[in-house]
Design a protein around this nucleic acid. Structure first.
Lengths: 339, 339
DNA sequence: TTGTACGCGTTATCAT
DNA sequence: ATGATAACGCGTACAA
């Protein structure tokens, strides 16, 4: 490997001088600078960040941990985080926990080992608490995205899940629906809990009764077995006319299931969900959704993180940003006249 | 930060002994081992990978550079790479070049600086050559994915682009189409060139003449301006009855454009493309596609990379894997009787 | 303006 | 079975 000493030797200066040229620090004569730069190019020198990090105690590396790399909500969020990081001269690395606490734990280890300067995390759920405590204990600044973790105080960017879910229900009611079911993520995830509350609020505001047989709680990630969901659908009697899905992935799963059983959407069943489907909403603007500002989650979260890192000495109060969801009405809801 | 010396002091042993416990090397009495382990837990010690990498000259970090994090082909590929890396005890980091040579160049810098042990790259195109040469010069093992870069010899995983495009054309012909247009990625990308060739082969095999006004070449990434594409569509006279898109993103863009102009798919225009749409094909199994085995691209590429790293001393011959594309017939092609 | 000496946290080598 | 020492590549404090 070409080191700073190789450059120094060939340029007949000390390593220190080379270092100064690289980092533009101290005073260097133009002549020396030019000579050193020439030698660096000749030898294709690349500074060793490993060694640099060791002495500087910072890596200029930031990390974004998401729970589902196949979900356009998170990939769009990633684009926002990327753009914000780049603006501030940080490099961004991604990890994908796959909604799994185990993989999340692995990534926390990676994060600690890699000594990244800060982390943006969409946590798997409430049981992520020890992972967050681990980051806190090791003094790694972090910002939570999309989901709260009870027991930890920190900067966070959230969506207005409760209000979004309420809007979805109210929209269904406005189209004549009165038997509305919900398929949701695990109640160990804060956003799932709030979306359930919003659903309940929406029912109550319209004098519709809440029936927990109309609610099915599973995972926000892709499901490998749809049989449980199928049983749930069969169990509802009378069957609902509409289903609210707690996120886009679940909406897709439900539609996959219904399609398999020859139930047509929206003719036989209306569907709405949280989060948009990215570019695929363009191809077939089909699903009516409560769209979150995915890009802003990443962009604003990253800005908060970088501010937190740069103001490390001062004790800033924890910040919390709540982004609204926008109702986008498309074609997955049928208007019902006689209930 | 808790260091190996803090552990050593508290456990009344030398740093070296602690190191041996951590890495399970050398001979340690059970008693000492237990004591050291207890102290490590008490102090929540985490080994500093930065220091470790510096002395070991390896980071156990692998990097995956993709060109479009919003494209399900690449995110699925990423899942495959992730799984394969994990199996071999490597950690995987992602980067997103956004089909931009500049961003790709930045990432190459990140890769060199971070001293990762190896890289999986989906290159932006032929002009990526200097980037690959840079990796080669700095002795960073790499495997190319999805696209060749003329001028560099290396391990590579490719899709059978020519054959896939030919299949798409033949399918259209079998449905009665005779005026078939193509929208494609830049000819500076090997897969785009092969897909064009496959398109031409498909025409020739059916005694249809090739007309370059029926071909529009742009970027494989999301387009910010559709006006050029719009002009192209207007220019074709007589208009085609079907369009082959060089990848899934372009198919979405074309459909977005047609939709905006009130042209219905497939009634007024048939569309087929390369690459599937991930989970969104489930929701509306609409597009007829030549689906590539995205997961396998990542999985097999990663295995090749790791083998290359581990056999670093021996000189293995370069390997090339070509994965077939599967025609999946859905609803985006109309059967034409009178041409 | 330039150079010397030291330290960052870890592991390999060679002793004991 | 355990320890002392040097080395990995770089930046900082201080000296010249």
């Amino acid at each position: 490997m070409v080191t700073i000493y190789d450059i120094a030797a060939k340029a007949s200066v000390s390593a220190m001088t080379v270092s100064r040229v690289i980092n533009n620090t101290g005073k260097i004569s133009e002549k020396t600078r030019a000579k050193v730069k020439r030698v660096m190019e000749e030898l294709n020198y690349v500074p060793n960040q490993t060694a640099r990090s060791l002495v500087l105690q910072q890596t200029k590396l930031l990390f974004l941990l998401i729970t589902d790399i196949m979900n356009p909500f998170y990939t769009t969020l990633a684009r926002g985080a990327e753009d914000a990081a780049k603006k501030s001269g940080y490099r961004l690395l991604f990890g994908n926990s796959d909604e799994s606490l185990e993989k999340e734990s692995d990534y926390v280890t990676t994060i600690l080992i890699a000594r990244v300067d800060g982390v943006l995390v969409a946590p798997a759920g409430d049981p992520s608490l020890p992972h967050m405590e681990s980051l806190r204990m090791h003094n790694v600044p972090f910002v939570l995205l999309d989901r709260e973790v009870p027991g930890i105080e920190c900067d966070i960017v959230l969506g207005d899940s409760k209000e979004g879910a309420r809007m979805l229900v109210e929209h269904l009611v406005s189209q004549g629906h009165r038997r509305i079911a919900m398929v949701n993520g695990s109640p160990s995830i804060s956003s799932a809990r709030l979306r359930l509350q919003g659903y309940q609020d929406g029912l109550k505001l319209n004098d519709l009764s809440y029936n927990d047989r109309y609610v099915y709680e599973t995972s926000f990630g892709p499901l490998n077995d749809l049989s449980e969901m199928e049983q749930w659908i069969d169990r509802m009697d009378p069957p609902p006319t509409a289903i609210v899905a707690g996120n886009n992935v679940l909406a897709v799963e439900v539609m996959r299931l219904l399609r398999g059983r020859g139930i047509s959407v929206p003719d036989d069943m209306s569907i709405v969900c949280f989060d948009d489907l990215g570019p695929y909403s363009e191809i077939e603007p089909f699903l009516t959704v409560a769209a979150q500002q995915a890009y802003q989650f990443g962009y604003m979260g990253m800005k908060m993180l970088i501010e937190r890192i740069q103001e490390r000495e001062t004790t800033l109060p924890w910040k919390k940003i709540v982004l609204p969801a926008d109702l986008i009405i498309r074609r997955s809801v049928k208007e019902i006249t006689q209930p």
